[in-house]
């Protein structure tokens, strides 16, 4: 780490955070967060991704105050209005304000992302760490199941599950989560294998810690870094699959303002009122791009081995 001044002041919060000899666990942990943040914030593209995602959260939280209209308010006299004026992004085929629907749609997108992450990441983490830690036939069975789910094409499997469960956001989330966990399991297992026989794990065993305790206090925390990177990068794909299901009419059902479904309805008016389909597409692109940017930045910050490539 290069410092701008040859004789930096060695006092204050920064010195405390970057200290080589942290006096407490708390200080060490904060110091690590600080170092990660420094690495993250040195990349402008990562910050851009982070900013877009923060904006998404804020928009989702304050949609009723930000949106000029209610998302499902119809104004049939004013159908397919062009952009500008009262409706900055125009109106759709029922005279609903597209900007308002986009803003409310961010809630659906955010909900899908959070739910998929909350469901699939712990499953993958559990399967992977248990397989990696215990090895033997446990690993053989778990990883074979993982391979089988990996072998399924994601979108098709999600389609098949939605076909069974019926269309809707809830079922789309379940379908995506079922197809999302296998890569996490593989990563968690690979990580676990690298330190399963490390001294600190043996020390724990000698101290008399049970398997469960070792898994939770030693193994899982060390897997979190690469999991966070992978989940962040994956969310870009999850958004695209969710939007794809919505586009096919298998995700969010009308009149819910969901971006993929909005593209699907805008499709009929593509020739003369292109903005109806174009705007939600741009929204999807932006959010997906943000996850990719943030994920790339996180990978560089959390995994020094990959910083070069």
């Amino acid at each position: 780490m290069s410092l701008s001044s040859p004789l930096p002041p060695r006092r204050g919060l920064r010195a405390w955070l970057t200290s080589d000899t942290p006096a407490s666990r708390f200080q060490a942990r904060l110091g690590r967060y600080y170092a990660t943040w420094r690495a993250l914030s040195s990349n402008p593209l990562t910050l851009l991704g982070l900013a877009i995602l923060l904006a998404l959260v804020l928009v989702a939280a304050f949609a009723p105050w930000l949106a000029p209209f209610a998302p499902n308010d119809q104004d049939l006299a004013n159908r397919l209005a062009p952009m500008g004026g009262l409706h900055p992004l125009g109106t759709d085929q029922l005279g609903r304000d597209i900007l308002s629907r986009l803003l409310y749609g961010s809630r659906v997108t955010l909900a899908i992302i959070v739910l998929v992450a909350v469901i699939s990441a712990p499953i993958g983490l559990a399967v992977g760490t248990i397989a990696g830690y215990f090895g033997g036939w446990v690993a053989a069975v778990l990883m074979r199941v993982t391979d089988i789910f990996m072998a399924f094409p994601r979108l098709i499997l999600a389609l098949a599950f939605v076909a069974v469960l019926g269309p809707g956001i809830d079922n789309a989330v379940i379908a995506i989560a079922i197809t999302a966990w296998p890569p996490y399991a593989r990563i968690a297992r690979a990580e676990t294998l690298t330190f399963r026989n490390a001294d600190f794990v043996r020390a724990s065993i000698v101290e008399g810690a049970g398997h469960w305790r070792i898994l939770m206090t030693q193994i899982v925390p060390l897997c979190l870094g690469s999991m966070i990177v992978r989940v962040t990068l994956d969310m870009a794909g999850v958004i695209l699959i969710a939007a794809g299901l919505g586009f096919l009419g298998l995700g969010a059902q009308p009149p819910t303002a969901e971006w993929g479904a909005m593209i699907s309805t805008g499709r009929d008016y593509m020739l003369d009122q292109w903005w109806v389909a174009a705007m939600p597409g741009i929204a999807i692109l932006l959010v997906s791009l943000a996850f990719n940017l943030l994920g790339d930045g996180l990978r560089d910050a959390l995994d020094p081995r990959k910083r070069r490539s």
Partner: peptide, 22 residues
């Protein structure tokens, strides 16, 4: 490649149809 990873394929297809066909 970043754009390729982030863009919804069905949307890009619609835009391409609009521009290059229609």
């Amino acid at each position: 490649s970043l754009f390729g990873y982030s863009v919804p394929v069905f949307w890009l297809g619609l835009v391409a149809l609009l521009v290059f066909y229609a």
